[in-house]
Design a binder for these strands. Structure first.
Length: 261
DNA sequence: ATGACCTAACTTTTAGGA
């Protein structure tokens, strides 16, 4: 099975891109982030025509996450637990029926950006990461193949950024943000890309500004975290860098992981 | 050297992104 994640920066603006990616790459599951539309405005028709089932958790103008699956989906959860007062649509989870008869639990995650530092936005990011950690801990007790995929808005390590010094004052590279990401890994989750490739300079985001793409000033912030039962079956990962060169691209590119189930 | 973008919305300016 091929599982992919992509922050599309508006699904309405990027529908042709998403369709092209689905046709060319044929993922079994695609997790989307930053839909920037409400559920009823999600342009699902052409996606469903390709054979995908949809689970959408949208909101007006900002955020919004979805799971597209070629296989039956059930057990849909929208939002993390303990979300009193959190009206951002940043988490959706579903159980996907595997072709081999087993199940696979997948979440599409859009973790808060957290900038600027010293504001409630950064506190919100850290609190959200704590909630994700708690929920991941509970999910791991199920001992299922589990994939927490999405835009984490965290640069895990210096090798994941073109120039670490330039990001020292940014919420994506703060010790607290990176520590919270490491706590997720310490639960027993595996960073899929890093399980397959130790190289520096693997990026998933290039800013629209300042010719970041042309100068390869990228960062790696889109991740697939795997439970042991998923990591055991991981065979390969891919960063679909070419999409960043398409006409009117998203600033993020898809990341995918292949499993031998 | 410097600045350099994109999206949605109560749209001609702002908020949010990263």
């Amino acid at each position: 099975m091929l599982i992919a994640t992509w922050n599309v920066n508006s699904i309405k603006q990027r529908l042709d891109h998403a369709i092209r990616f689905l046709e060319e790459t044929q993922p079994d599951v695609l997790c989307l982030q930053e839909l920037k539309c409400q559920d009823e405005a999600f342009p699902g028709e052409r996606i469903e025509a390709l054979g995908y089932n949809l689970a959408v958790h949208g909101q007006k103008a900002f955020n919004g996450v979805a799971i597209l699956s070629r296989h039956p989906i059930s057990d849909i959860r929208r939002g993390l637990p303990e979300g009193d007062g959190d009206d951002h649509s940043r988490y959706i989870e579903a159980l996907v029926a595997r072709p081999d008869g087993g199940v696979l639990r997948v979440a599409s995650i859009y973790l808060p950006n957290g900038n600027p530092l010293g504001t409630p936005k950064f506190d919100y990011k850290l609190a959200w990461m704590r909630r994700l950690e708690q929920h991941a801990r509970a999910l791991l007790l199920l001992e299922e193949p589990l994939i927490l995929a999405g835009d984490y808005n965290v640069i895990p390590e210096p090798r994941d950024v073109y120039d670490a010094e330039a990001w020292l004052g940014d919420a994506l590279y703060q010790p607290e943000s990176r520590g919270a990401f490491r706590r997720l890994l310490a639960l027993g989750l595996t960073d899929a890309v890093r399980a397959c490739d130790d190289a520096a300079g693997l990026y998933t985001f290039w800013d629209y500004q300042a010719g970041a793409w042309q100068r390869n000033k990228g960062i790696r912030i889109d991740h697939l975290l795997l439970s042991p039962q998923a990591a055991d079956r991981l065979s390969a990962t891919e960063i679909h860098k070419a999409t960043r060169g398409w006409e009117k691209p998203s600033d993020h590119v898809p990341v995918s992981a292949r499993f031998d189930f």
